[in-house]
Every structure is written in structure tokens, then in C-alpha cells.
């Protein structure tokens, strides 16, 4: 996590980290004098604003996270399908030089299988007719793309998780700071 860029590789912005709550609250309020002048009312307003602002940022992150999780799920279901097809192609390649025809039951419908004899299976239909090697290559590259997409989705989800955690910790810290302020006020009053 040594990178200093403001976004991740796919352009999701980083959450701001509050270094020093005290300083941050002063800066947010403009000058300390203003804070003192409007005392409680001003501070409450600032806190409210920050809370709303944080909430907005965080719900954007959460929205992106939900989207990305959906994307991951669709890829996760696509990958086994591609793997199954690849398995079949690989099987046909293994059997290419066998003289004996391959006896098979293929799925005609969800609950219906039919028998078929493959005399010489050196072509595969992946929507279009391909040679087995071409089909293998095509499916392999599709599988690679899907896996890469999944990797990116996982990276994005982890990144978003970091930002959400940061925002939540920021919020808790500002809240704690406020509690301490109030307590200090009570003591001095």
C-alpha cells in the first residue's frame, strides 16, 4: 500500500484520512475564532455537515461495492461454464487419434439426454465451426479474460473496503473527539 496515487487503477478515488482530528475540525470551521464566536451552535453545524458529507461519500463507496460484488458473481458463474466447455474440447483432442467412434450422451434439454456417436471429431462448434485447436485457443483466451476480470473486481472490492473502513474510522474518531470536547466543557464550567 505504498502507492500515493489518489485513485486505484480503475479510477476509484481514495477516502481522505483525517490525520489530526483537532486540526481537521479547526480547518473545517475556517478559523478557530469563528468556532469560538459561534460556540456550540457553530460546532454542531460543522459536525452535522461533516457527518452528512461522510455519509454521502461512504454510501457512494458502498454503492460501488455492491455493483462490483454483482460483477464478481456474474464472472464467478461464467468461469465454470467456460471450464466445462474447455474440458470437453480437451477430451475431444485426447481422443482425436482414436479410431473407435466416441459414444456419448449429450444434453438435448435440461432433463433430456440423447445418444450420439462421434465418428471423427476434429471440429467443434463454438457458435461457428472451429478446428479443435482453434476452439481450445478461443476458449482459453475467453477464460483468461474472465479470470482477469475477476481479479480486477476482487481488487476493486478490496480497495473499496479499505475506503469504507477509513471513512468509518474517521467518523468514529470525530465523534469521540466531540464527546471529549463536551466532557471538557462540562468540567471547566
Amino acid at each position: 500500500m505504498a502507492d500515493t496515487a489518489d485513485t486505484n487503477p480503475r479510477g476509484i478515488p481514495k477516502a481522505p484520512f483525517v490525520d489530526d482530528v483537532e486540526e481537521y475540525m479547526k480547518k473545517s470551521s475556517g478559523v478557530e475564532a469563528t468556532l469560538r464566536k459561534f460556540a456550540e451552535a457553530a460546532r454542531q453545524l460543522i459536525e452535522l455537515n461533516i457527518a452528512v458529507y461522510y455519509d454521502q461519500i461512504n454510501s457512494k463507496y458502498k454503492f460501488m461495492e455492491a455493483n462490483m460484488t454483482q460483477r464478481r458473481q456474474s464472472l464467478e458463474s461464467k468461469i465454470p461454464e467456460l471450464e466445462k466447455t474447455l474440458e470437453t474440447i480437451q477430451f475431444l483432442i485426447d481422443k482425436k487419434d482414436d479410431d473407435k467412434p466416441i459414444e456419448t450422451m449429450y444434453e438435448l434439454n435440461d432433463t433430456l439426454y440423447a445418444k450420439a456417436k462421434l465418428e471423427k471429431a476434429d471440429k467443434a462448434n463454438v457458435m461457428l465451426e472451429y478446428s479443435l485447436d482453434e476452439a481450445l485457443e478461443l476458449l482459453q483466451s475467453k477464460l483468461n479474460t474472465a479470470n482477469k476480470g475477476l481479479e480486477n473486481a476482487n481488487e476493486d472490492i478490496s480497495f473499496l473496503r479499505d475506503q469504507i473502513t477509513t471513512m468509518e474510522v474517521n467518523t468514529a474518531r470525530i465523534y469521540n473527539w466531540d464527546v471529549r470536547q463536551r466532557r471538557a466543557k462540562k468540567v471547566s464550567a
Binding site: 500500500m1 478490496s158 473496503r161 477509513t166 474510522v169 468514529a172 469521540n176 464527546v179 471529549r180
Partner: peptide, 26 residues
Amino acid sequence: GLLDKEEENDVEVQWEDQQKINRFSR
């Protein structure tokens, strides 16, 4: 839960800590 609101906490969270918290959550 991170940073329990009920608990008083005077220790400042440094960027280094935040990264640890993020890593843990991940």
C-alpha cells in the same frame, strides 16, 4: 466493530494504524 463509540479513546489514530485496520478488515 472498529473504535467503539462508548469507549473513551485518547490514543490518536495514525495513518499507519489506519492502514493496519484496513488490512485487517480486508
